[in-house]
């Protein structure tokens, strides 16, 4: 029996879909059987970020409406074995499905996969209720901005009400130099307000944007800091004790030697 994890944030544009794609891929790299479910019906993105858009034949709503079997709608990833995507419908609306139906599908996917990663839409309406209905636990994504933290706080409250207790937190798009100058909320402050466990921090990284645009999850490129961050998060989900990524961008001795030799 697998575990269903919903990735949610309240506010839009903080990186739910990117986080879903990268955590899903990172877990698959660790040898787990993973399926990612996009519940953002009408505004699907996860397929684009994963570069699987052109492989969609059936989607989540087709499964719910009985137009196909669940297995037919699962799209196999082109890079990772044992990584699948269940895409959202683009032509429908969030009100076309109900939380109960989504829960049935998630429960079925849990039987055959180690992890079901649910990408939640922004907002707290029907789409949110759909997304969290089948989840065993939640990961709340926020950025170090007051507005995003405010929305994350609201989401944590709603999750508690829905009996998905103690969600964990990912602080995304951290810009160390802004925090250093006091121009950005620092991570302790965010944890203090939200009062939930910190699962990981991800630095702001151009590679993430580049990767998303080219349909390659950033986590595949091991050299980037964001990839390390996502891999660490995946390991923590699996129960490993991994220290938080250092935000200081000091080159290591090895890197300096490499640079000196013209290899870095």
């Amino acid at each position: 029996m697998g575990e269903a994890i919903v990735i949610t944030s309240g506010k839009g544009g903080v990186g739910k879909t990117t986080t879903s794609a990268n955590i899903g891929t990172a877990l698959a790299i660790q040898g787990k059987k993973v399926v990612m479910v996009d519940t953002d019906i009408g505004l699907r993105n996860l397929d684009v970020v994963m570069g699987l858009e052109n492989r969609i034949i059936y989607n989540l709503v087709d499964v719910i409406e009985g137009k196909c079997r669940l297995n037919q709608a699962l799209i196999k990833d082109k890079r990772c074995e044992e990584l699948y995507l269940l895409a959202a419908a683009q032509t429908k609306d969030k009100d076309d499905v109900t939380p109960d139906r989504i829960k049935l599908i998630i429960d079925e996917l849990k039987l055959t996969h180690d992890f079901v990663i649910i990408d939640c839409p922004a907002g707290i309406e029907q789409g949110f209720r759909n997304a969290i209905s089948g989840a065993d636990r939640a990961i709340v994504v926020t950025t170090p901005e007051t507005a995003a933290v405010r929305d994350a706080d609201r989401i944590v409250g709603l999750l508690e009400k829905q009996n998905i207790p103690s969600p964990s937190l990912i602080v995304n798009r951290i810009r160390p130099h802004l925090i250093k100058n006091g121009d950005m909320l620092d991570i302790d402050e965010i944890c203090n307000i939200l009062g939930i466990d910190l699962l990981g921090i991800v630095p702001d990284d151009d590679n993430v944007i580049k990767a998303a645009n080219s349909g390659e999850p950033a986590v595949l490129n091991v050299k980037t800091r964001s990839a390390i961050a996502y891999r660490n998060i995946a390991r923590r989900i699996l129960g490993d004790n991994v220290p938080l990524l250092s935000l200081e961008e000091k080159p290591t001795f090895g890197k300096r030697v490499k640079k000196f030799l013209g290899l870095g």
């Binding site: 929305d151 609201r154 709603l158 009062g195």
Partner: peptide, 13 residues
């Protein structure tokens, strides 16, 4: 006779 509540009152609550 005060009402005692425990926990966090979050945004929107």
């Amino acid at each position: 006779n005060a009402k005692i509540i425990r926990g966090t009152i979050r945004s929107g609550q």
